[in-house]
């Protein structure tokens, strides 16, 4: 009996702890929403301060995807008219959200983990607890809301920048006409929804994983280094896995 019985294995700690933290922060936000001044500071940090970084990375990505696309297409066909549409489709649905998500995991995730980690190792988190202030609500609350709001916005921004640079490459290097390149024919309504869902899920997961690593920091500066590293790796990996899960589900559902 016991050998044949199907037992669900206990989920590993790396999943359980962030899930619990997510529950805590959502409950804390329902209880008390962060005041707007602290929220705007964080939104500015997550959104505006990431804009240049995301422009550079997504810009280079757009350039290179169109370059490769054109070069490879020219090997089989002399006609480049389909490249723009395929590129925009891939940007909206996959590369836009996922590379933006990876970049936010890198910049914002590392930032949150570094901040919370150094607060943890210098006992600031304990000082909050003993003053009856909830660190999850006070520290993570505004950062969580900012990430959830700003990641989809940065997805739109990053996708636009990527498409713009891709267009520049296609237009100037390969002479594709503007109307031919900026062809939204392959992008349908549900591609946009899927891109948005991906961005939103990254926005939820990144701050929670980063904060989890930060709260677990132990020791001095090694602890902070550990927390930051862990946050970047876990958050980036979570972005890839979520992208895979959402893409697979949408494929299987026929969207």
């Amino acid at each position: 009996m016991s050998r044949t019985a199907f037992r669900i294995p206990a989920p590993p700690e790396v999943v359980v702890a962030p899930a619990r933290l997510l529950g805590q922060v959502v409950r804390a936000l329902g209880h008390r929403f962060p005041p707007s001044d602290r929220l705007f500071t964080q939104m500015h940090n997550v959104g505006n301060n990431s804009a240049v970084f995301i422009s550079v990375t997504l810009g280079f990505l757009g350039l290179i995807l169109v370059y490769q696309g054109c070069v490879q297409t020219l090997k089989v066909l002399p006609d480049l008219s389909g490249v723009g549409a395929a590129f925009i489709f891939a940007m909206v649905r996959t590369f836009g959200p996922t590379i933006t998500g990876m970049m936010i995991a890198t910049r914002v995730g590392a930032g949150i983990a570094a901040e919370i980690g150094s607060m943890t190792v210098t006992d600031q988190i304990e000082a909050m607890k003993v003053a009856n202030s909830d660190p999850v609500s006070y520290i993570l609350g505004p950062r969580f809301v900012s990430c959830v709001v700003m990641t989809p916005i940065l997805w739109v921004f990053g996708t636009l920048v990527g498409v713009l640079f891709g267009y520049l490459m296609g237009h100037w290097r390969f002479g594709i006409a503007t109307q031919t390149f900026l062809d939204l024919g392959l992008v349908s309504y549900h591609d946009v929804v899927i891109g948005f869902l991906k961005a939103l899920s990254y926005g939820i997961v990144i701050p929670v994983l980063a904060a989890d690593a930060g709260f677990k920091a132990r020791g001095g500066s090694e602890g902070v280094g550990w927390a930051t590293t862990t946050a970047v790796v876990n958050a980036s990996f979570a972005v890839i896995v979520l992208d895979f899960v959402i893409s697979t589900l949408s494929f299987l559902l026929g969207y």
Binding site: M119, T122, D123, Q124, E126, A127, M128, V130, A131, N132, S133, Y138
Partner: peptide, 25 residues
Amino acid sequence: VQFQNLALFDFLSVRDNVAFPLEAD
């Protein structure tokens, strides 16, 4: 509590640090 490594909030001013226990609770 006064912690051994002080645990002052470096993102707050002196006044906000001292007022923290009163304002948090």
